[in-house]
Design a protein around this nucleic acid. Structure first.
Length: 335
DNA sequence: TTCCATGATTGCCC
DNA sequence: GGGCAATCATGGAA
């Protein structure tokens, strides 16, 4: 046994101190059998070192012979062990990475926008939020909304197609590499653990490509969203009918032009606008009326007359052309 | 192009 | 949180 280190070093492969092979060599071996196995290892190493000097056919034959050699599994284990303790241990330290926060952000955003995950009923949270915030204006709004949804759905479709492609390519490549490494592990010291590690390296590479896809998808959604919001931000006058309905309510409740939530909802429905738009309209109207009652007097009279005609109780809407009371008035307290 | 009307936003108050 | 007041920004008529 004291010859072993010298023997190993003489072939340029330092194996001293590796219990695997030593153990294998010692198992049930003593005396001449141990010597014989040392010789075997020496032979194998010699053959491996000279294999590149031979012709292809000779090398193939030699490879086959080496594969069948009785000491091959032991040598394989030791070489794997050496590899494990050197190069792979360095790599191993780099593998334990926390989940990428950037990737998490992208995932969350794609999920929130309805691009990733289950498809939300034909639209996205963004579209709904944008519509709620800026208000709908009848058919125009629906048209723009559906346009937004269509574009978002297009982005979603492209994203999923690309993602599928990447996953397929990743799986194909992984299988290919695994087969290659398994094949090579017959002649090279490649342990299952190393194959596993290689698979995770491949997956990391592919996930970085996926991240680029996610990033560009997010950018596309942001551009679409900003365009949509910009379009919605453009002020549009309410249609004539909506203005009439709002004015009618305002002048017929001039003593207390503060519609309740229910009334606002009703008006919003009638005018095909949002409740917040109704609130804005009444806020603006109250102020502008108060600032210039004279200017609005004619309008007030017109609506008062109209209401008087249509209403069954004319007296209820008699002389109401007063300045709007403040929200602190008694009427408001009842709301 | 200008000017007014008007819907939306913002900051403050209660 | 709702309302007021000031202001912004845009539509549309002249």
């Amino acid at each position: 046994m004291d010859e072993q280190p010298r023997l190993m070093h003489s072939h340029g492969v330092g194996m001293a101190g590796h219990p695997g092979l030593a153990q294998h060599m010692q198992d049930g071996t003593a005396g001449t059998d141990g010597e014989g196995r040392k010789q075997d290892i020496g032979d194998i190493l010699q053959q491996i070192m000279t294999i590149t000097d031979q012709s292809l056919d000779e090398a193939q034959a030699r490879k086959h012979a080496l594969n069948c050699h009785r000491m091959k599994p032991a040598l394989f284990n030791v070489l794997c062990e050496i590899k494990e303790k050197t190069v792979l241990s360095i790599r191993g330290a780099q593998e334990e990475e926390p989940p990428d926060p950037q990737l998490m952000r992208l995932d969350n955003m794609l999920l929130a926008e309805g691009v990733a995950g289950p498809e939300k009923g034909g639209g996205s949270a963004a579209a709904a939020a944008a519509a709620a915030a800026t208000g709908g204006i009848g058919a125009d709004n629906s048209a723009e909304h559906s346009d937004y949804r269509a574009k978002l759905s297009q982005i979603r479709q492209i994203y999923h197609t690309e993602l599928e492609k990447y996953e397929q390519a990743c799986n194909e490549f992984t299988t290919h590499v695994m087969n290659l490494l398994r094949e090579q592990s017959r002649t090279r010291p490649i342990s299952p653990k190393e194959i596993e590690r290689m698979v995770s390296i491949i997956h990391r590479k592919f996930s970085s490509i996926q991240m680029q896809l996610k990033q560009s998808t997010c950018e596309a959604v942001m551009i679409l969203r900003s365009r949509f919001l910009d379009a919605r931000r453009k002020r549009r006058n309410f249609n004539k009918q909506a203005t009439e309905i709002l004015n009618e309510y305002f002048y017929s409740h001039l003593s207390n032009p503060y519609p309740s939530e229910e009334a606002k909802e009703e008006l919003a429905k009638k005018c095909s606008i949002t409740v917040s738009q109704v609130s804005n309209w009444f806020g603006n109207k109250r102020i502008r009326y108060k600032k210039n009652i004279g200017k609005f007097q004619e309008e007030a009279n017109m609506y008062a007359a109209r209401t008087a005609v249509s209403a069954t109780s004319v007296s209820a809407h008699g002389s109401q052309a007063n300045s709007p009371s403040t929200p602190n008035s008694a009427d408001r307290r009842t709301r």
